[in-house]
């Protein structure tokens, strides 16, 4: 049954996944191309200098990409369920409701993390040719909260979409905006280093919020 759930989610989200993969990898690749262009125009030394003395990251254009991808994936995966009332059918299947809901979320998270891992792969494959390991770590560690924000946005968007009433949806959206803003407070590169382990755990714990919405849906809450 779980295999079937994963397959159903794959059918629903595969096009979104491929587009997200192309867009995020393309953005990462474009950042690398821009860096190479700058190297050919001004020399690698200028980039090192700017990275060290002015805290430049050169991959800033990726900042809100994971956030948007997370929201879009959640919308593509869960909005049809709610609109076509498919969730009701899913919850009546002969399988644990928790297992099914969390399998659906796990399927979405797997696709999202695949996108993000490919992104980091592109960065790690190209940046060490230009920058020393210290700066490559600096760039990727600084970008890590953006990708955590992508995971958080997916989980919180799922929570909002699965919520059956608009009144609570507005409350959930308000909470989500404040939570997501925590991932974008960085006043400097690597600002989150000591907070990252806790933020990562918290981000993945947000998966349980969807169960509140599903519980409310099961208890018949509606507008």
């Amino acid at each position: 049954m779980i295999k079937a759930i994963f397959f159903k989610e794959w059918i629903k989200t595969r096009w979104c996944f491929f587009i997200a993969l192309v867009v995020t990898t393309g953005m990462a690749g474009y950042s690398i191309l821009k860096i190479n262009k700058l190297v050919s125009l001004k020399g690698a030394g200028h980039l090192w200098e700017v990275a060290v003395t002015r805290d430049a990251l050169f991959i800033d254009m990726l900042e809100y990409v994971p956030l948007i991808v997370g929201i879009v994936l959640a919308v593509v995966q869960f909005a049809p369920e709610m609109q076509r009332k498919c969730l009701k059918l899913t919850l009546h299947l002969p399988c644990s409701q928790k297992r099914m809901i969390f399998s659906m979320l796990a399927a979405g998270l797997t696709l999202l993390l695949t996108c993000f891992i490919v992104n980091f792969g592109v960065l790690y494959a190209c940046l060490p040719a230009i920058f020393p390991s210290q700066l490559v770590w600096r760039f990727t560690l600084s970008a890590f909260p953006w990708y955590l924000a992508g995971v958080a946005s997916y989980l919180m968007a799922s929570w909002i979409i699965l919520e059956p009433t608009w009144k609570m949806r507005i409350v959930d959206i308000t909470i989500s905006i404040f939570v997501i803003s925590i991932y974008f407070l960085a006043p400097a590169p690597e600002a989150y280093n000591s907070f990252l382990p806790y933020l990562t755990i918290y981000t993945f714990m947000l998966i349980v919020l969807s169960w509140i919405s599903v519980s409310r849906f099961k208890s018949g809450k509606q507008d």
Partner: peptide, 9 residues
């Protein structure tokens, strides 16, 4: 109080 890049000139 900040994380230094670890690269100097």
């Amino acid at each position: 109080n900040y994380v230094n890049a670890g690269i100097y000139f």
